[in-house]
């Protein structure tokens, strides 16, 4: 299979996403440029990586959604292509309205970089099909604006449709306030669209895809994507 990793000006986890999918996972990867208007036909999954696209001086992701490539990403997603947005990528996907809701400033108003525990709520998605139901993954976060918010109807719909894929939990998998690092509603860390082909998550699975860095819990997300594509 083939991943396409987009680089916006200000992306800084693009190299990391390429390393995780190419070196750690062993799949093919191409780097896509924000000024490109076409997504190559053979791409199976687009990764919108973390960083500070265009400096994020306005609202995070608000400028990136107008990048030439984003029009093609929307088309790609509407045709059923897989898209995963990580951190800034998640913010861009909400700005592009491929995912509902918005990411607000963390409630403590500070950037936070640390390991969190994620309970996996939905293991039937293309991004989580190799994970056991209710498994708890250790994956780091690194963001100042990761506080997921949406109106009550949207949250209800997300809950009812099983669109919440990851929730912040403690090590035992319990969903507690203590385990919520940014104030997200219902401890939401990652959601999927209704069609099930676009995932956004604040934690960085690409950072824990290599055992030498102390943990490779994140790799199973990329393995799930490859598994989904290969068994299609």
């Amino acid at each position: 299979m083939k991943f396409g990793v987009i680089t916006f000006p200000g992306s800084n986890c693009d190299h990391d996403a390429i390393f995780a999918t190419q070196t750690c996972l062993g799949e093919e990867v191409v780097n896509l440029w924000h000024k490109d208007t076409q997504i190559p036909n053979d791409i199976d999954c687009i990764v919108i990586p973390g960083g500070f696209s265009y400096g994020d001086y306005l609202r995070c992701g608000a400028i990136a959604r107008f990048s030439p490539i984003m029009k093609s990403v929307v088309g790609f997603a509407n045709r059923g292509g897989l898209v995963i947005g990580i951190c800034n990528g998640f913010q861009i996907l909400t700005e592009a309205q491929l995912l509902p809701g918005v990411l607000l400033r963390n409630t403590n108003m500070r950037f936070v970089c640390k390991d969190v525990w994620l309970r996996v709520e939905n293991t039937t998605t293309p991004f989580s099909n190799l994970i056991e139901k209710n498994a708890v993954l250790r994956i780091p976060i690194a963001h100042g604006e990761g506080n997921y918010f949406a109106d009550a109807d949207t949250i209800k719909r997300l809950e009812d449709n099983n669109q919440i894929v990851f929730r912040y939990s403690n090590e035992q998998g319990e969903i507690t306030d203590m385990a919520n690092p940014n104030g997200s509603i219902n401890n939401i860390a990652g959601i999927i669209n209704e069609k099930g082909n676009v995932l956004g998550m604040m934690p960085h699975p690409e950072r824990y895809s290599d055992e030498i860095l102390g943990c490779d819990d994140g790799l199973i997300i990329f393995k799930s994507i490859a598994n989904y594509i290969h068994s299609k």
Binding site: N12, F19, K114
Partner: peptide, 25 residues
């Protein structure tokens, strides 16, 4: 230190000990 991104570039083997360890890809 939690306000600093200590892991971007995925080379940080350790940032909390006596010395930081950064692998070289």
């Amino acid at each position: 230190f939690e306000q600093y991104d200590s892991q971007v570039r995925t080379n940080t083997v350790s940032s909390k000990g006596d010395a930081a360890v950064v692998r070289l890809k």
